[in-house]
Design a protein around this nucleic acid. Structure first.
Length: 213
DNA sequence: ATCGTGATTCCCT
DNA sequence: GGGAATCACGATA
């Protein structure tokens, strides 16, 4: 059996040594049509898929993780950054399906993949498939682990340096729950996670909002 | 529960 | 332009 912490040996790049030359570059990423579907469906189907970041200036090797937790931000959704239309910050949410939207909040960055215009899926946690700089449990830590920041905002996730490869590895036990850390529309069950994963972020179920009495 | 921390938006001028 | 309110976080207790 393959060690869970290694990238799966698929596709080309086979050397006489074996599979060590495997690279995500040899695999076909999820195409535009994957993202051009209802956002909650995309959020669910991203579970088990592999998020991969191509090495760029200075960094060596690909970084990859198996997606285990996502949230959908949909139409008529006051928690959605685009709920009040297009702004300078959220402009990459309007580039069409399959683009990267990275924003900064407090001291951290959070990464999304866009679906329909003005809708996106927040990537909350992955299981490391390569050595990462931080435990990617939670959207801010995920970005830190991959080195994602506003420089990655607006990239095309179908052909760019950040991509998603099809589901692979152990089966996903899909679970749904309310989204984390939001005030508005806090009851909608638009958070999806793999109930079997150790890497799902945990936070208080019901933080904010004063209750009278 | 609260705190540190800064970008962004909105509602004014 | 300015200033207040807001915020899809993470670390702490």
């Amino acid at each position: 059996m393959r060690a869970p912490s290694l990238l799966p040996p698929r596709g080309g790049g086979l050397s006489s040594e074996g599979v060590r030359d495997w690279s995500p570059a040899f695999e076909r990423p999820l195409g535009r049509s994957f993202y051009a579907r209802p956002t909650a469906r995309v959020a669910r189907d991203l579970l088990g898929c592999r998020l991969v970041l191509r090495p760029s200036r200075g960094s060596e090797g690909w970084r990859a993780g198996r997606i285990v937790e996502t949230e959908a931000y949909v139409a008529d959704d006051p928690a959605n950054h685009a709920s009040r239309g297009r702004t300078e910050r959220n402009r990459s949410m309007f580039l069409g399906p399959g683009h990267v939207y990275v924003y900064r909040i407090h001291q951290v960055h959070c990464a999304n993949l866009t679906t329909a215009r003005g809708q996106a899926v927040l990537l909350r946690a992955v299981e490391p498939l390569t050595p990462l700089l931080a435990g990617p449990r939670g959207p801010g830590l995920l970005c830190r682990a991959f080195g994602l920041d506003r420089a990655h905002d607006g990239l095309d996730a179908v052909v760019g340096e950040l991509r998603v490869l099809p589901r692979d590895g152990p089966p996903v036990e899909v679970a749904r729950a309310p989204r984390v850390g939001i005030r508005l529309a806090a009851d909608r069950p638009l958070r999806f996670f793999d109930g079997r994963s150790e890497w799902v972020s945990k936070r208080p179920a019901r933080p904010r909002r004063k209750v009278p009495g």
